[in-house]
Computed example of a mutant assay.
Amino acid sequence: MRAGTRPSAGMVVAYLALAVYAAISLYPFAWMVSGAFKNRLEILEGGNLIPRSPTLDTLVDTWGRLNFFDYFLNSLKVTGLTVLGVLVVYSLASYAFAMIEFPGRRAIFWFFVALLFVPSITVLLPLTILESRLGILGTHIGLVLPFVNGTAPLTVLLLTNAFRAIPRELHDAARADGAGEVRIFLRVYLPLVRPTLITVAVLTAVPTWNEYPLSRVSLNEESRYTLPLALEQLASGNVPSYNEIMAGSLILVVPVIVLFLALQRYFVNGLSGAVKE
């Protein structure tokens, strides 16, 4: 909209609708933040969104007494290894799809893309049986490998398009200078797709950090629990402490929010660049 021009009625209605939708979406989050700073008595009373006597005791107790730091480290380990595996494996695979001619390249690429339409829950049972036979069921590596595999369709699609968007002349010039494919990949192409790599990292880290179904089926030892399972323990007690549940939820979502805010510029640039062909 240009400066000095009056918005049309349609735009006003659209903005009002978006504002109402944003308020409805943010209201539960605001209650979660509010509850994390209330004591048990005040949250049971309900009432005001803003705490009467804000306290950090609930967050401190949830973090310390309930061993949330250990669960936090477990989630960090699983998420970090998953992101690392995705970036290493699928950056190489996507470079091959984009730049190297080999038999069946298009068929294999579109097979990966087609997997986008397969619901992940449908492979939960066979995946559990396979991991049990491999002896990795109940371990963190038993979470990391399926997570890495599950990100293949979208990651390959984004990174392949990002590599294809780079002028082919750069590849030919590097080959003329005597560089091999590995050196071209590491020195020329990988730096140029950094925004897309960051986008892939964020798109991988967020669902991995929040993942629940496979973790619930796989992990039985409490010492290996991730944050979503720790949060479930809080909610499944005989007398749930809702302020502690809110505090645990806040601990769970804050790292994701911080990650997105820190990388949103790269995320937007990488996503817009990767979908261009």
Rank of each mutant, 00 (worst) to 15 (best):
P28E: 13
T226R: 06
R6K: 15
L229W: 06
L261M: 12
F37R: 07
G80V: 09
L190T: 05
R187P: 00
G248R: 07
L127C: 11
R52T: 06
V88P: 04
S25Y: 10
W31A: 09
L143V: 09
L271K: 00
F112I: 11
L137C: 13
G10H: 04
A162H: 05
T79L: 10
F267P: 02
V200H: 02
V275N: 14
L41T: 15
S215K: 00
T58A: 10
V217L: 11
V123K: 14
P207G: 07
L49P: 04
T204N: 08
V60S: 12
V258W: 02
F260W: 01
Q264D: 14
M11D: 04
G85K: 10
V275R: 07
T160I: 08
R52I: 03
V193S: 02
R265N: 12
I166L: 07
I100Y: 09
P191N: 03
F112L: 12
L125S: 14
S25F: 10
A19K: 13
A107L: 15
K77W: 13
L259W: 13
G80C: 10
G46K: 12
V182F: 11
L229E: 03
T226A: 02
G178K: 07
N39T: 10
S215A: 05
I136G: 11
V88T: 11
F185A: 06
A19I: 15
T196V: 04
L154R: 01
Y225R: 00
N269K: 14
Y225D: 09
Y266P: 01
E221R: 00
S8G: 15
M1H: 12
I166D: 09
E211L: 01
T122S: 15
L44C: 04
L92K: 02
L59F: 14
A114M: 13
L127K: 05
V188C: 03
A17T: 15
T58S: 14
S218Y: 02
T139M: 14
R224P: 00
I108A: 15
T82L: 12
F147M: 06
L154V: 01
G85P: 04
L87Q: 05
F163H: 03
P228K: 05
P51C: 13
A30W: 00
V20S: 15
V20R: 14
T160V: 06
F29H: 03
L219G: 01
I43S: 06
N238A: 14
V148I: 15
L190K: 00
G178C: 06
A152M: 03
A176T: 09
W31T: 06
F260K: 08
R106G: 09
Y225K: 00
T122R: 08
P255A: 04
R65Q: 15
V20M: 15
S91H: 04
L261R: 08
Y266E: 09
Y27Q: 01
T62L: 11
P153D: 05
G104H: 12
S8Y: 05
E211P: 01
V83E: 09
R164E: 05
R175F: 02
L250D: 01
S120G: 14
A152L: 02
I251D: 07
V275E: 15
S120Y: 12
S75G: 07
S8N: 09
G4Q: 11
T204P: 05
L115P: 08
T204Q: 08
T196F: 01
L231M: 03
L250N: 02
L227W: 05
Q264A: 11
T128L: 14
D70N: 12
S75A: 09
V113Q: 11
A3W: 11
